[in-house]
Every structure is written in C-alpha cells, then in structure tokens.
Design a protein around this nucleic acid. Structure first.
Length: 598
RNA sequence: GCGGGUGUGGUGUAGCCUGGUAUCACUUAAGCUUGCCAAGCUUAAAACUCGGGUUCAAAUCCCGGCACCCGCACCA
C-alpha cells in the first residue's frame, strides 16, 4: 500500500498522546484538575511496568543471587537525621519583598563564607543582615529565612509528637536492615540487597511529564562490599561489553571502551563499579533502549549527592535532551557509618585475615564492690567513664598520675585499687571494617518513558498517512500475541477463540498476556497491536477450517508465515525467548514465508 | 516559585480578535459489509480546564485557581 515511507521524528507529545490514547499513562487526579508531578500507569502501562520489573528482578535476584526486601514508605525522622537527608535536603530560602523572587540563602552568601552550605539558619540569617545582603535582581529587601525540605512530612500516631517522612529513596530501609541481612547471608560479603518501591520527593516544580515526578517507582540495589577486595565474581562475564562513557575530565568527550579497558585505564574506579555499569546497560538494552541514544556520564564533584563518593549516571537521549535514568553511586561507607553513629549499634562486617595477627588488647576493669559503697548513685557513671578512657589517659595513669574523672560537673579522684588496667597480646584472625556500598538506583518511570520514546517509530507515507509502531522487545510487550479471525463469520471466530485459549493456557503464568480481537478490518487490528507493541499476531483464515493452520505475523517486519497448531509452542519459544526472526525461523523449519506484495 | 505561552469529545483540531451553547478528521461502539495490513456504508456515543465577574446572552471579554509547554531558579 505504501511505496515510500519517511521516518518522522518522535517527540514528547507523540509519546504522551499515544500513551494516553492506548492506556499507558494518565495524569493523576485528572477528574479534579490534576496535580503536577503525579501520573497513573494505565492498564497497558502497568503491564509494561510489570514486565520491566520482572526483568529487573530476574537480573538481580535470579541472576546475581541478591536478596529482595520490602520496607515501609513512612519512615521516622531519626532515620533521615542519621542519613543526612533532613539536613541536606533542607534548603533555607528567602524571597525579595519587592520583586518576590526566591533565592537559596546559602547561594546569596556564597562569596562571604568559605562553606555556606554548612551554615545553619541563624548563622545564615546573621550573615545576611550583618553584610546587608539585598536581592541580587532588584536590590530589594529580603524576607525572613524559611526552610524548604524536599521530603513529604507526616505524623506517626495520633499526635504530632512523632514526625515521619515519606522516604526519598528506598535505600535507607536496606541500610537499616544491614545487620539482619548480613547475618542472614552468614556474614559474608559481597552481599547484594534489592528493593523495588516508591520514592517521594516534593519537587518545587515538576516538569517534563513523567521524567520528574513527586512520587516515583524506584528499583535499587545496595551491594555491600569489602573495600579491600575490588573484585566481583561475575566480572569476567561482562568485561568485554562495550560502553559509551563520558568521564568527568576536562576534555568532556565520549569514550567508547570495553568494561575491561575502562577499568584498566582508570576511567571507572573499580571492577565492581564497572560491572554494575555494564549490567545496567544490559538491562536497559534488553528493555528496549536504543544503544545509540545511551551513555554513562560521570558526575562532576559538585553535583554529587551528600552520600556519594563517585557516581555514574546512565543517560538516555530524548526529546528533552539527555535524561538521567539510572544512577550508579559509590556511597562508600557513608550510610552505615552514619547509622552506626546515631544508633550506637555496631554495623561493621568482619573479614578473615590471611594470617592471624597479634594485637595488643587493653582491658580495663572497674571494681564495683569497692566503688559502689563509696560513690553510690554515681558509681555507674564513673564506671562508664573509666571503661572509656583513651590512650592518653591510660598512659597518664600508668605513669603514676592520679585518675580523675568528671561526672555531673564534679571532678572525682579515683584511687588505684578501684580499677585495673591490663594488657594482653591476642591472636586475631578476623578484623572488623565498614562495608562499602555500590548502589545502582533505577528511576523506573523515567526508564519506561525512554523505552516508549525510543521504541516508537512514526512513518509518514506520501499521502501524509501516519503509522506508528512501538518496537518493544517481546519481554517488555504488554501483550505478547494477539489472535484474530480474518473475518467475523463462517465459524472463523470460533476457531480463533479456540486458538486464543490454547496459547493463552500455554503461556499462562509467565506474565505474558494475549489479546483477542474481531472488530474492524484485519489491517486495523494489526495496527492497533502495532501501537501497543504486540510482537506477534496470529490470524485464523479459511485454510484454518481445512487443515488447522494459521498465519503468524511479525510486527517489526510485517512478514507472515503459515504454521500449524503443533508448532505454536516451539515457534513462540524460538521467536520470543531466542529472538529468532520470523524469516530465519521459517527457513529453519521449512515453512514458506508469505511476503507482502508491495 | 517567578516570567512567557497554551488549555475545545479518547486523539488532533476549527470557532475566540468582531459574544448568540460548537467545525472537521481520526478513534470508539452496534449493524451491514470485508478473503491479510488503519477500505466502505448506516447509526450511535463523546468536548468548550475549573471558579468568579461583565452581559439579556460567554468557548469567545475581564479576574483568579489548576494543569501542560518553554525560560529562570531548583533537581540530594
């Protein structure tokens, strides 16, 4: 029908209008005018999303053997106090009384202080009034400072005494469970733990549709590693993969390197980090991203999150430009260290030493039998002080100086018969250390948008007729196959329904849905399926009535082959699971390919 | 949050300046038809972003809210 077809650019609005029309995406709360930054995944979109998550889970949980856990969205304040989100996520803002523009207070005093980011509210306000800082736009007076935190705040329980926040990332739930998980893993590293869940960030101005939303689907891995062992067991499997890398160097050019080369040239810091960059690429490509519109960009030092030491973002080129879809951060030991400090619980891991080493162990004992009667109620506090003596204090005591501790603002002299300090040499074969964390964090909504944009091909023929085909990989396709009767008469519909049920049952349980349709012309039905990315359409025709065979039509090539019922199972396996094209499959099975006339 | 632009059935639009309850196409549904790539016919369903004001009368003019797009700012 179409002789000349031109591929047309796929824009954001092409994707959004198709997504809405075909049930991928709807703006949330639309009935009441909508709220910026929230989107609903519709029936077709949910299938797409579930397929992605299943694939992601397959890669990490089945492939790498990592644990999956599931933690609450509502999280008490203390967690974010420890993680740094409460402070780091809060910006002190001020606005101009005259032109009502808003500014970050720390930006306004950038030249007046070496590290304005570290200042608290009072200090910032003091600096502003002291130096007479005015609105940089119109020189107007500035309002009082107010705090803006990007986390959604709520209350836990009936009173507001216990503040909670919706988590801005799923990672904290994993860190909080580190001890449980480490024991569950029989105290071995590396240990990977994933979580699929929602994250919440009260963005000031959400933009670009589903790219920046206030509630979003995350899929995160926290890989706990021994920093002295940069190897990863599966590294050889992916070391030959080629990557497009944009490192944070002064040249700022995209380098094409294999994983191995990137590590050897020092472009990527470690084999572990490099492995997960490669695995991320594998997953994204499997999901249907265009390899030519994908790269990994290393963060510049100033854009790194407060917890990160190094970070590579997977970015996809879209109608909006380059968009971050996965962040692969080296969080070093930041989070566990913070939680250890704030909770007082030892979150270190243990490492078996190659050779046992002798260490000097100092033991301080307090004689409570003697101290108790003398100090009474303060005896406990004094004991704690004595047990916590540092090296200098111990040395002082050993050199004969009297031991004096201060408790409740009182200096108390302790006689030497009340405690003993001894030193022994012990043979140690393990040592404790803070595990480091490598974190690939996937923004699922963004990934799905990019998959849609990269998959959607628009072609316009001479008459201006536009056709749209969503070239999704079969693993992502909301519907894996569709069954049509060629005509809705002469018993073809019964045959088609029977075929549909047969295949549906065959594929049941693997999350692949089928679709049955008998309305409209056959071409229209093919086209509907093309728009939602259904890779195969099976059509029952008049020959079916004679010999039970039917045609299978491939979305991407629009080619057809005639197969019989017995072949369905193996055919779908070859086509879907092994990625064989219909052309090759026909050749292999001696089936004639029915090419379209034009 | 500021500034600019936009907002009409599911989608894309005409009408707005110059007020008189809405155009066209696609889509969808039912029926007829149709022997493989959005065919045709008949019928049907379906919209003025929301609120207020002006007016006899508002999609249209005015004000405000909301949403979307762009720029600024923000983006851990």
């Amino acid at each position: 029908m179409t002789e000349k077809q031109n591929i047309a650019k796929t824009t954001y609005s092409d994707v959004i209008s198709l997504a809405r029309r075909r049930g991928f995406l709807y703006p949330s709360f639309d009935l009441y005018g909508g709220v910026a930054g929230f989107y609903d995944w519709g029936p077709v979109g949910s299938l797409l999303k579930n397929n992605f998550l299943a694939m992601w889970r397959e890669a990490y949980v089945e492939g790498e053997g990592f644990f999956e856990i599931d933690c609450p969205n509502v999280t008490p304040e203390v967690v974010f106090k420890a993680s740094g989100h409460l402070d780091e996520f809060t910006d002190y803002m001020t606005s101009c009384n005259k032109c009502s523009q808003h500014f970050r207070a720390d930006h306004l005093v950038a030249e007046l202080h070496p590290n304005p980011d570290s200042l608290g509210k009072e200090e910032l306000a003091g600096l502003i009034s002291e130096k007479g800082v005015k609105c940089p736009e119109c020189k107007g007076d500035l309002t009082e400072l107010y705090a803006f935190n990007l986390m959604f705040k709520t209350n836990i329980g009936p009173t507001s005494e216990r503040p909670g926040y919706l988590r801005p990332e799923t990672a904290q739930g994993i860190f909080l469970n580190f001890r449980n998980l480490y024991i569950h893993n029989r105290q071995k590293l590396p240990m990977g733990v994933v979580q699929i869940g929602k994250g919440f960030r009260n963005e000031i101005s959400p933009r670009q549709g589903v790219i920046r939303v206030r509630e979003f689907q995350m899929a995160e891995l926290e890989l706990f590693v021994d920093p002295e062992n940069p190897n990863y067991v599966n590294y050889p499997l992916l070391k030959h993969i080629s990557l497009s890398l944009l490192p944070d160097t002064t040249e700022k050019e995209i380098l094409s390197r294999t994983v191995e080369e990137a590590v050897e040239e020092g472009i990527i810091d470690s084999k572990i980090l490099a492995y997960f960059v490669a695995l991320t690429q594998e997953i994204l490509l499997k999901a249907g991203l265009d390899p030519n519109r994908m790269r990994f960009r290393q963060h510049e030092a100033h854009e790194m999150a407060h917890y990160a030491k190094d970070c590579w973002d997977a970015e996809a080129l879209t109608d909006f430009g380059w968009v971050e879809i996965v962040g692969i951060a080296d969080r070093s030991c930041y989070d566990l260290e913070q939680h250890m400090k704030h909770s007082g619980v030892d979150l270190r891991a243990m490492r078996q030493l190659a050779e046992p080493k002798m260490v000097k162990v100092r033991k301080i004992e307090a004689d409570m039998k003697k101290m108790g009667p003398v100090f009474r109620g303060r005896a406990g506090k004094i004991r704690d002080k004595i047990l916590a003596l540092d090296d200098d204090a111990v040395a002082a005591v050993e050199s004969g100086q009297p031991l004096i501790v201060s408790v409740d603002n009182e200096r108390i002299s302790i006689s030497t018969d009340m405690f003993t300090i001894s030193q022994t040499n012990e043979n140690r074969s393990i040592e404790r250390f803070m595990p480091h964390v490598i974190e690939p964090s996937h923004g699922v909504d963004r990934i799905l948008y990019c998959v849609l944009e990269h998959s959607l091909k628009r072609t316009v023929d001479e008459s201006g007729e536009e056709t749209r085909v969503l070239h999704l990989p079969p693993v992502m396709a909301p519907y894996l196959f569709a069954v049509f009767p060629l005509m809705s008469r002469d018993g073809l519909t019964d045959n088609a329904r029977e075929l549909y049920n047969l295949i549906k049952n065959e594929l049941r349980g693997r999350g692949s849905l089928g679709f049955y349709d008998e309305s409209g012309s056959i071409g229209r039905r093919y086209s509907r399926m093309d728009e939602i990315g259904t890779p195969y359409c099976l059509t029952v025709d008049y020959q079916t009535l004679e010999d039970g065979s039917f045609t299978i039509r491939e979305r991407d090539s629009k080619e057809q082959a005639r197969i019989n019922k017995k072949q369905v199972r193996t055919a779908l396996r070859d086509l879907v699971d092994h990625g064989i094209s219909l052309k090759d499959w026909s050749k292999k099975n001696g089936v004639k390919l029915i090419s379209r006339d034009n």
